[in-house]
């Protein structure tokens, strides 16, 4: 059976992620777990994250699962969500926090002070709400999802990958930024698929059946 572990290191909306995975993969064994053994025996890993990057990184380290997550990232399909995406990079400007270093690049804050949106209203930070995702590269996880589909975002920071080949989705908020990244068996999004209605569920469904 397909065993999917949502990594529990004390941060993030784990239940929502697990419920969305269960909704699209009723046949799978979806487990919220902070046990190394579960991560080792999992077929797929989801790394969520919410709140501040320094807290997320220290919780991941202190929970004792960081090594297991890094091991899993070598060959198992791994999906990072929100701060779980940001943690994959080398460094975040938020508290100058080193990340897991699985993707080269850094995480920076929106700097939109004084800029106005197309309708004349000011840009708010965090970006909170539904924005379009431009599929900048083909990827198995985009299957059956229209280009320019809306997904739900809540964030003040975003990743800047060094390697443009790792960018598979872009969103415009004051500037174009990478909102979906991928490399080999890793896929990660700044937006929240578990809160993005049909489009988000389709993305998780594609992940559940993905064989990179």
């Amino acid at each position: 059976m397909n065993k999917i572990v949502v990594v529990d290191y004390g941060m993030g909306n784990l239940r929502s992620v697990a419920q969305a995975l269960r909704a699209v993969a009723p046949e799978a064994n979806v487990l919220i777990s902070g046990e190394v053994a579960d991560i080792q025996s999992a077929d797929r890993i989801v790394l969520p994250g919410q709140g501040a990057m320094p807290d997320c990184m220290s919780s991941l380290r202190d929970s004792g699962v960081q090594e297991a997550v890094l091991n899993a990232s070598r060959n198992k399909p791994l999906f990072g969500v929100c701060v779980g995406e940001q943690m994959l990079f080398d460094l975040s400007e938020e508290g100058n926090t080193p990340g897991l270093g699985l993707l080269p690049g850094k995480v920076v804050r929106f700097d939109l002070d004084g800029q106005l949106q197309a309708d004349g209203s000011r840009f708010k930070v965090p970006q909170m709400g539904w924005n379009r995702v431009q599929q900048s590269r083909p990827h198995a996880l985009w299957q059956d999802i229209p280009d320019q589909e809306y997904f739900y975002f809540v964030h003040s920071y975003y990743a800047q990958p060094d390697n443009a080949e790792h960018i598979v989705g872009m969103t415009d908020y004051g500037q174009l930024f990478a909102c979906a990244v991928a490399r080999d068996n890793i896929f990660a999004t700044q937006f929240h698929p578990e809160k993005s209605a049909h489009a988000g569920l389709q993305l998780y469904k594609n992940f559940v059946h993905w064989n990179p």
Binding site: Q117, Q127, G129, W130, N131, Y150
Partner: peptide, 8 residues
């Protein structure tokens, strides 16, 4: 492209 306004 822009952030959508929300209805809640």
């Amino acid at each position: 492209m822009t952030l959508a306004k929300r209805i809640i």
